Simulated assay, not measured.
Amino acid sequence: MAGKYVEGEFNIHPMDQFKVEGLFNGGATPQGFADLFMITNQTLWIALTVLAIIGLMVLGSRGRANVPTRMQSVAELTYGFIYKMVEDVTGKDAVKYFPHIMTLFLFILFANLLALIPTSFSVTSHIAVTAVLALMVFVSVTVLGFVLNGVGFLSMFWPKDAPAALRPVLAIIELISYFVRPVSHSIRLGANLMAGHAVLKVFAGFAGALGLGAVFPIFAITAIYGLEVLVAVIQAYVFTILTCVYLKDALHPHH
């Protein structure tokens, strides 16, 4: 929504677009356990994200024509891109985990891109969503590391090549950095998306308030929107490649 000009001041509220509101109860905000199953704008756009993924990957590759359609080409290119990323970063023995990584990438990518539709809702701008994704990666990678390597998984925290006097200090630093991973993993994605959408809302407010004199805000919105499309793709890529790096640590803790 555009900002309004009230008593000499711009009445712009860029953070209002991130409010989680119920769809069928007058826009009330969920509060407590009683509203756990409330259908909200966030629920709607998560569902639309899933439907968009199904539309591309299932319907797009259903025909498997020798001369692929545009949708089939996009689906195949996306599949090949992520498959090669997993193989190059994590190794061939990690290909078995490709479906999990592919699902993460597609969900984040489509959630980011759908959030750029006017009047939509940005799912991945909420730390509650990105934290769940990051914790899923952290827990699954940690469990996998112990299952495959046993106590040997802890060797990744002990720098054998460092001087003996420094090893305990470096081990503590490595341990802290490991547990900070889900925090940085989630905040990086959520903060970048939130900042971009907030800036778009501010310039949209200026454009709505200035009326015919809104040439500069409109040009700024166009430029920022193009940048946000790039950010949406890059952040999905960064989240996914970091997942591959963490998975590599679980599969090869001694490297």
Score class of each variant (00 low, 15 high):
residue 119 T to Y: 12
residue 104 L to T: 06
residue 122 S to N: 09
residue 93 D to E: 02
residue 65 A to N: 09
residue 52 A to M: 13
residue 48 L to H: 15
residue 248 K to C: 10
residue 242 L to G: 06
residue 97 Y to S: 04
residue 117 I to Y: 10
residue 188 R to K: 12
residue 199 V to E: 13
residue 194 M to K: 05
residue 38 M to I: 01
residue 200 L to V: 11
residue 205 G to A: 13
residue 219 F to T: 09
residue 242 L to W: 03
residue 197 H to R: 05
residue 225 Y to L: 15
residue 174 E to Y: 03
residue 74 V to R: 12
residue 37 F to H: 02
residue 221 I to V: 15
residue 224 I to G: 14
residue 244 C to M: 05
residue 182 P to T: 00
residue 156 M to R: 02
residue 235 Q to H: 07
residue 89 V to T: 08
residue 147 V to T: 14
residue 239 F to W: 06
residue 217 P to Q: 09
residue 58 V to L: 06
residue 222 T to C: 15
residue 140 S to T: 11
residue 224 I to D: 13
residue 145 G to F: 00
residue 4 K to N: 14
residue 235 Q to P: 03
residue 51 L to Y: 01
residue 116 L to D: 04
residue 53 I to C: 13
residue 228 E to D: 13
residue 4 K to R: 15
residue 21 E to T: 14
residue 154 L to D: 12
residue 218 I to G: 07
residue 236 A to N: 00
residue 250 A to S: 06
residue 120 S to D: 06
residue 55 G to F: 10
residue 157 F to I: 04
residue 80 G to H: 07
residue 45 W to Y: 08
residue 40 T to L: 04
residue 221 I to G: 11
residue 177 S to H: 04
residue 187 I to D: 03
residue 70 R to V: 08
residue 22 G to I: 01
residue 93 D to M: 03
residue 255 H to G: 02
residue 185 H to M: 07
residue 66 N to G: 13
residue 108 I to P: 05
residue 18 F to I: 05
residue 234 I to D: 09
residue 232 A to L: 02
residue 18 F to A: 08
residue 12 I to F: 09
residue 137 V to H: 07
residue 186 S to I: 04
residue 86 V to W: 11
residue 244 C to F: 08
residue 79 Y to G: 09
residue 67 V to C: 02
residue 14 P to A: 00
residue 253 P to D: 11
residue 5 Y to K: 05
residue 236 A to G: 14
residue 160 K to D: 10
residue 77 L to K: 09
residue 222 T to F: 15
residue 238 V to G: 01
residue 183 V to D: 03
residue 110 F to T: 01
residue 149 N to G: 11
residue 146 F to N: 03
residue 178 Y to G: 03
residue 112 N to C: 02
residue 184 S to A: 12
residue 255 H to R: 06
residue 200 L to P: 13
residue 225 Y to S: 14
residue 197 H to G: 00
residue 38 M to E: 05
residue 68 P to D: 02
residue 209 A to Y: 09
residue 110 F to S: 01
residue 254 H to L: 02
residue 200 L to I: 11
residue 58 V to M: 10
residue 132 V to W: 00
residue 212 L to E: 13
